[in-house]
Simulated scan of single mutants.
Amino acid sequence: MKTRMFYPLRLGPLSLLLRPAALMLCALLTACVLLAATVGVTRGSLPVPGAAILRMLLYPGEGAAQQQFIVWDIRLPRMLMGLLCGAMLGMAGAAMQSITRNGLADPGLIGVKEGTSAVVLTLIIAFPSLGLIWRPVAGMAGGLLAAALVICLARDVSRPRFILVGIGVSWAFSAAIGVFITTADIRDVQTALVWLAGSLHAATWSLLGITAFWGLAGGVALYATARASDAALLGDEAATGLGVRLRALARLRFAAPVLMTAVCVACVGSLGFVGLIAPHMTRFALRGGQVSLLSGSALLGALLVLVADNVGRLALAPLQIPAGIVMALIGGPFFLLLLWRRRDQL
């Protein structure tokens, strides 16, 4: 008996093809994300039982004051920020690779991360009295500036030169950050180094709200243009014949990942390689269009960041290693492997 690979789902004028295998895999990834989130909230210098956390969630105000502070003010914002930033970075990488048709494309590898970091550091040091809401705004401006500079220099986002130019721009911004670190006050340098390493320890409910707002806006834009992006992968002539506005699509599908990445960097620092690894792992495990790719990349990105944060926080306790450093240890060899596999195309 032959099994059906697709099941149509219709809601009024909307229709969607569901793949049981993809749904099962996404359900498994969701379970892994929930498990990593549970470990992040319950484990630490003061273990808190899951039953106690459940009571705090259902009946706020109950439980020991110390446990309430640790769970509500430290671990929950940290866990949710890691989940949200991982999902945003995974989706950003998937969209960037699709629109550039380059498997090495990642907003963190084309100078967005360093451009955002340079502008946010300037804001923190020069204007310390400004509220947190201005940090993502400044970060987005820096990220867009870096991305625009790379596009102007590379001229073609679909060729490997785009990534090489992006790496060069990244080093230029890194040099500016290095000048700051060597000349600034030692107290400012310590704060900057912890933030630049990609640590989630400073996550707060206010920063989480800002990140969620921009993440939702970017996610809606990417999912709304998913079908048009699938058509664009067929070629410019076919996509134009299907009514796709290629210029508008390219601008939106490029700007949304850059903004999402810039917001993540502005709020928690550098979490590199998430947008590079998650889409590749999704393509290996899932087949389908942009909706499947975005969903799988979001789940895998969230899982990667949560696991990296848990490892960095618990492996050498009480010493804590920022999640960005753990991700760099994983992502560096992964990036070199991709370069080796594409050595004849560069």
Rank of each mutant, 00 (worst) to 15 (best):
V189Q: 04
L339R: 12
T211W: 02
T183E: 06
L306A: 06
G168M: 12
D188H: 14
A51Y: 09
L132A: 15
G218V: 15
S292F: 08
G331E: 09
P128S: 05
R19T: 10
R4E: 10
S117F: 01
V169N: 06
R19P: 00
G289I: 06
C85T: 15
A221D: 04
P279I: 07
P279D: 03
F254C: 12
S297F: 04
G272Q: 08
T100H: 02
Y223N: 05
L207I: 04
P60G: 11
L35W: 15
N310Y: 08
G86Y: 03
T42D: 01
Q320H: 10
V48F: 07
R135E: 07
I99H: 03
A315C: 15
V274N: 02
G296M: 08
A255T: 15
M5S: 15
I186W: 09
P333Y: 12
L76F: 13
A64G: 14
V137W: 07
G82E: 05
L336A: 14
G139K: 06
P49A: 08
V33E: 01
P49K: 01
L11N: 04
A328C: 11
R287L: 11
A278C: 05
G312I: 05
A31H: 04
V150D: 01
A95Q: 14
W214N: 03
G63S: 10
G288M: 07
I186T: 15
L249G: 06
M56R: 05
V220H: 04
G82D: 08
A175K: 05
G324T: 14
G90T: 05
S129L: 09
W72K: 12
G50V: 11
K2G: 12
L144G: 02
D230I: 08
Q66L: 14
L233W: 06
G61H: 06
A118R: 01
S170M: 11
V307M: 10
L319T: 14
G108P: 04
L303V: 09
M91K: 09
A285M: 15
L54M: 13
R161N: 07
G218H: 05
A228P: 00
G168I: 09
G82S: 09
G296V: 01
L164N: 00
L246E: 03
A52M: 09
R43V: 11
M260H: 07
G115M: 06
T211M: 13
P49D: 11
D236T: 11
A315R: 00
P47W: 10
L299T: 09
A302I: 09
S206T: 14
V194K: 08
G61E: 01
G219C: 13
V137I: 15
Y7Q: 04
W72L: 13
G63D: 06
A175W: 05
R159Y: 05
I53V: 15
R101F: 02
I163P: 00
G44T: 08
L104M: 13
L46K: 10
I177R: 03
V120Q: 02
V169R: 04
S206E: 13
R161C: 00
G243K: 04
I330W: 09
L80G: 05
P47K: 10
W72S: 11
I124M: 14
C26Q: 13
S98H: 07
A228H: 15
L208K: 10
A95M: 13
G143R: 03
W72F: 14
D188E: 14
L57C: 12
V119T: 09
R43P: 02
I186S: 12
M140G: 01
L276Y: 02
R251A: 12
A148M: 13
G243T: 03
M1H: 11
